[in-house]
Design a binder for these strands. Structure first.
Length: 762
RNA sequence: GCCCGAGUGGCGGAAUUGGUAUACGCGUUCGACUUAAAAUCGAAUGGAAACUUCCAUAUGGGUUCAAGUCCCAUCUCGGGCACCA
């Protein structure tokens, strides 16, 4: 008999699938469809890691399961390639990010193919491909046209040494991650998407999603809806009045002072002459404070502005303070402080010795207008970075932004030699002198005539999350050069039925919902939620239970597992068996061997002698049912366990051809290469087997007898006897094994037919 | 600080609707095959006791005929948010 040689088998089938384009998906009218995808990976130089394998295999198990059930299945693949790691590599080595990305994609594709995924490779997409980002720019323009992409002055992290804006994650302990210089906040004009416009709908529709509760809660908290009121406070001396937001307008009688954020717009008109220096000093210090400092030191600080406001309810004169515990970006950037009812206000009042008044509550609507506020801010999308999608905007002489016309797309990312941002505060795109100037058609508002006008291009690029906010729709028609997505194709395939990933619980998953609603409003999408079901998988940690990391040297390379001789089928099946898919798990090298032994047993059963007698009808039908239902509820680990039990049973009793066909079919989603080899030997198709309930109903069952809830005896009884409670109880009570517990007398008996159980209470 | 999730043998885990706790796998032990080892096959495996019981699902209470599962409190670990008025 031949030995199980996974690498040989896997190579054979992978070649076959590649040559026949086995997983190519086409629209078939009337055939029910399923579309599945993982969160597309960033193809790093390190290649596939075990976390990718878990993520991709979950999608693959479902993909193959649905295929075997005769559904029309699409499972595409793509690469999220724009971003900092490639740019950093470029800065360090002088290699173009385009080149690095191409190499990494080739490697990733090769590795993914080694795992035998049922991917439609003709639908591969890559966000840094001009044929892709052309349509990212088109999406941007639609938002721009509707005023949902706009520019605004706001405070950003700024490194005075490198002369560049930094993202939050590029600020480490208040210092620039590159040069170590202390960062500060600087007011700058940036691009935003107006996601807040959809805050209500984004919140309301969360409840209807088949998503994990954890993610839904996180999104709700992120949006953070607060119902309250806005109240105007007159300022003494004629300065503009101050509008505050509060969720407790009923506490206004206890408002003993106002607090403004350091960045409060119009602060200069409020501060009195003699307080100017102190306030300016405080503001400068607050803007310099790093995020970490603000988080770690919540000690209240603040200064008096020298100005007073009038409490509209008490008509009393109350002082106005500036303090950094009030945030500029939330509400109006100003609050009425009610130290008797608010812990933070009390802390501040105690520190600065301000009055605390235990006033009574009044009608909520007495002095304010009802107002709903959200924690969620508009989405800042401009980056002063090279390796991203260019923003399709140009500026006229007066600095007004104009859309690049759609027929001029894509705005190609220009090739430059030096990727590092310079002291201009602009990305490396500004160094592409020839690229900077552009002529775009502009309509004269008076005559209606169109003239080509010379303009200067925007040099910022888009946040990578913009690229991934529509890619699922590109999968429907990935080579379309007429539109971002084809109307017919998308209404057939989408919304996506299954989406699997282990990251981006809020950002990406909220942004893509936002774009979906916008494009539905614009008539481009026939649905308002892009993802029906979300599977949020757990991490795989190192054998020591810690996160895998290069520096700790505890990284398991999936390709090593394959090449050590275990093969992809073992790797895939092991990662499904490792535990519940949505929980973190620790890698256990010895358990990999256990899964290999299991697959080896499957092989030996199939390629050994078959039994002529069909002895396993009951366990076979049971297993079909169990595996089918377990996959439906994403309980992949118990599905594999059921297959192991089945194989153990077949080893004991001998396996018939029917037994083996069922085994191979049920095994195929997990170990497709081995299963294909088995099915070929058995001369069988891979149609998902059905179970027959009649084999699951036995003639006799086991009746469990408890006394006071403790198991005391088991009886083998006829199924029909379950109908006659009286007879059963009589029989049980007469039995010696039960009698010795019931001498004190039986109070009552409880019969649970469903569980074939009698509990005797004594 | 607030909001989620988890805690079950030596280890990863199972128990789907309150109903036989510990499926399946790893590890360990014994046996078969072998000159021997590996591989493979078979058996045992929660703890104490000893032929019949008792105790065990983080800890302490509670509800119930019956609790890993429900309720209350506490502890530990993981994740998210973090002065959002």
């Amino acid at each position: 008999m031949e030995r199980y040689e996974p690498l040989k088998i896997e190579q054979k089938w992978q070649k076959k699938w590649e040559e026949t384009e086995a997983f190519k998906a086409t629209e078939v009218k009337g055939q029910p469809k399923v579309m599945l995808a993982e969160m597309f990976p960033y193809p790093s130089g390190a290649g596939l890691h075990v976390g990718h394998v878990r993520n991709f295999t979950i999608v693959d198990v479902l993909t193959r399961f649905f295929r075997q059930q005769g559904l029309n299945v699409m499972r595409p693949f793509g690469y999220d390639t724009f971003g900092l790691p490639a740019e950093n590599y470029a800065i360090k080595t002088g290699t173009a990010p385009q080149e690095v990305t191409a190499v990494n994609i080739t490697n990733f594709r090769k590795q993914a193919k080694k795992l035998g995924y049922a991917i439609d490779w003709s639908r591969e997409i890559n966000t840094s491909d001009p044929e892709y980002y052309r349509w990212t720019q088109w999406c941007f323009l639609q938002l721009f046209k509707k005023g949902l992409a706009y520019q605004k002055e706001s405070y950003q992290w700024w490194c005075p040494e490198d002369q560049t804006v930094l993202a939050n994650e590029q600020v480490e302990n208040g210092k620039c991650w590159r040069c170590g210089h202390e960062v500060e906040k600087k007011k700058m004009k940036q691009w935003f998407f107006k996601i807040t416009e959809y805050a209500d709908e984004l919140l309301d529709e969360i409840d209807n999603l088949e998503w994990p509760e954890k993610i839904k809660t996180m999104q709700k908290n992120w949006i953070g809806k607060s119902v309250g009121a806005e109240i105007d406070f007159e300022v003494e001396g004629g300065a503009p009045k101050i509008k505050v937001f509060t969720t407790r307008p009923d506490t206004i009688l206890g408002a003993t002072f106002l607090v403004l954020a350091p960045e409060y717009v119009g602060l200069e008109y409020i501060v009195s002459e003699d307080c100017k220096d102190a306030v300016a000093k405080y503001k400068a210090a607050a803007l310099k404070k790093s995020e970490i400092e603000r988080q770690e030191n919540k000690e209240k600080t603040g200064v008096f502005t020298g100005a007073y406001a009038i409490n509209p309810a008490t008509k009393e004169k109350i002082p106005i303070y500036v303090a950094d515990y009030v945030l500029a970006g939330y509400g109006t950037g100003a609050i009425m402080a009610v130290p008797a009812y608010d812990e933070r206000d009390r802390e501040f009042a105690e520190k600065l010795d301000l009055p605390i008044v235990e006033a009574e509550l009044i009608d909520r609507d007495a002095y304010g207008t009802p107002k709903v506020t959200y924690r969620m801010r508009d989405w800042l999308i401009s980056r002063q970075r090279y390796w991203g999608c260019p923003i399709p905007i140009a500026y006229d002489k007066d600095g007004n932004p104009h859309a690049i016309s759609e027929d001029q797309l894509p705005v190609m990312l220009p090739e430059v030699k030096d990727y590092k941002p310079d002291k201009s505060g602009r990305s490396a795109l500004a160094k592409a002198k020839d690229w900077l100037t552009v002529e775009i058609p502009v309509k004269d508002p008076k005559t209606g005539e169109v003239h080509m006008k010379k303009m200067t291009r925007e040099t910022d690029t888009l946040d990578g999350y913009a690229c991934s906010s529509w890619y699922l729709w590109r999968y429907a028609s990935p080579r379309d050069d007429k539109a971002a997505w084809d109307e017919k194709a998308i209404s057939y395939w989408e919304p996506l039925d299954y989406y699997c990933g282990g990251d981006h619980a809020v950002a990406h998953l909220l942004y893509i919902r936002f774009w979906c609603k916008f494009f539905a409003d614009e008539g481009y999408l026939p649905f308002r939620e892009p993802i029906k079901r979300l599977l949020y998988n757990g991490y795989i940690n190192a054998p020591d239970g810690k996160k895998m990391s290069k520096s700790k040297g505890n990284v398991i390379d999936p390709l090593d597992v394959i090449n050590d001789g275990y093969g992809a089928d073992t790797l895939r099946t092991y990662e499904m068996f490792i535990g519940p898919y949505d929980m973190d798990a620790a890698w256990d090298t010895r358990s990999v061997g256990g899964v290999y032994r299991f697959l080896n047993r499957c092989y030996n059963l199939c390629f050994g002698n078959t039994s002529k007698v069909d002895k396993n009808v009951v366990v076979r039908n049971k297993t079909i049912k169990k595996v089918t239902e377990d996959i439906h509820r994403y309980s992949f680990n118990t599905a594999v366990a059921a297959l192991m039990e089945y194989v153990n049973e077949l080893y004991k009793n001998g396996a018939s051809k029917e037994d083996l066909m069922v085994l191979a079919k049920l095994l195929k989603p997990f170990a497709p290469h081995l299963a294909s080899e088995m099915l070929e030997k058995l001369d069988s198709d891979d149609e998902w087997p059905k179970w027959d309930e009649k084999y699951l109903v036995a003639d006799t069952v086991e009746l469990v007898v408890q006394v006071n809830g403790k198991l005391r005896a088991k009886f083998e009884i006829e199924v029909d006897d379950l109908e006659d409670e009286e007879k059963l109880t009589e029989m049980v009570l007469a039995d010696e094994r039960v009698k010795k517990y019931t001498e004190k007398g039986v109070k009552k008996t409880i019969f649970v037919k469903k569980n074939k159980l009698i509990n005797i209470v004594v």
